[in-house]
Computed example of a mutant assay.
Amino acid sequence: MMTLSGSLSILMGVSGVAQDTLFSTSSQYAYWFDLTTWGVIHLAVGVVLIVTGLGVLADKSWGRGAGAAAAAISLITQFMFVPHYPAWAIPMMTLDLLILFTLTRFPIETSSGR
């Protein structure tokens, strides 16, 4: 799920950097950035999500903690992006919440069975 969320964030970032007409802009928003800045933010978060998702898949010790942190950062950035494209940001926030739930809910099993 993290690699999917990361890939989708990268696609959103590319659209923002390319100054696509997909997004609406309003200067009356508290977290206002230009679309290029939002594109770079989404690109960076997407790359981090993919890297941590691969870490979780490879069962690395840092994968779950870094993945939970990356999903939380993605959730916050998607929340801040809601005024620009709510039809995209709200499902992505749901996906990030599912990632957070999955990574933090279930206990970590070790090879010794504890």
Rank of each mutant, 00 (worst) to 15 (best):
A72R: 06
L100N: 01
F79G: 15
M80E: 02
I90F: 08
I99A: 13
P86W: 13
L97N: 02
A89I: 11
F79E: 04
Y85V: 05
M92H: 03
H84D: 11
F81H: 13
I73H: 02
M93G: 03
Y85S: 10
I73K: 03
A87W: 11
P91V: 05
L100T: 01
A70G: 08
L97C: 08
D96P: 10
A71E: 04
I73L: 15
P83L: 11
L100S: 01
T77P: 11
F79K: 02
F79H: 07
P86A: 08
Q78A: 14
A70W: 05
P91W: 05
I99H: 00
A70Y: 01
I76M: 14
I76K: 00
M92K: 02
M92S: 01
F79I: 05
T77Y: 12
D96F: 00
A71C: 05
A72Y: 04
L100E: 03
A70Q: 03
I76N: 07
H84F: 15
F81Q: 13
I99F: 02
I99P: 14
T77D: 04
H84E: 12
L95S: 01
I90P: 06
L95H: 12
L100Q: 00
T77Q: 15
I99W: 00
D96Q: 06
M80S: 08
H84P: 10
L100M: 08
M80P: 04
Y85W: 15
D96N: 15
F79V: 03
M93P: 13
L100F: 05
Q78F: 08
A71W: 00
W88E: 12
M80C: 11
T94M: 15
A89M: 11
A71Q: 02
T94D: 13
M93F: 09
L98T: 08
Q78N: 14
L75K: 08
P91R: 11
L75H: 01
I99Y: 07
L75W: 12
L97F: 01
T77R: 06
I99D: 09
W88N: 07
L100D: 00
I90G: 06
L95I: 14
M80W: 02
P91T: 08
S74M: 12
A87Y: 04
W88A: 07
A89G: 12
Y85C: 07
I99S: 13
L100V: 10
A70T: 06
P91M: 11
D96W: 01
Q78V: 06
L97G: 07
M92A: 06
L75G: 07
M92L: 08
V82G: 11
A71V: 07
L100G: 03
P83M: 11
I90S: 04
F79T: 01
I99R: 10
T94G: 15
F81V: 11
T94E: 09
L97K: 01
I73G: 15
M93R: 10
M93C: 00
H84I: 09
A89V: 13
L95C: 09
P86T: 04
Y85A: 15
T77F: 06
F81R: 02
I76V: 14
M93L: 07
A89F: 05
V82E: 06
L95G: 10
L95W: 11
P91G: 05
A87E: 08
L95A: 13
I90N: 07
M93A: 00
F79A: 14
I76W: 10
A89T: 14
L100I: 12
M80Y: 02
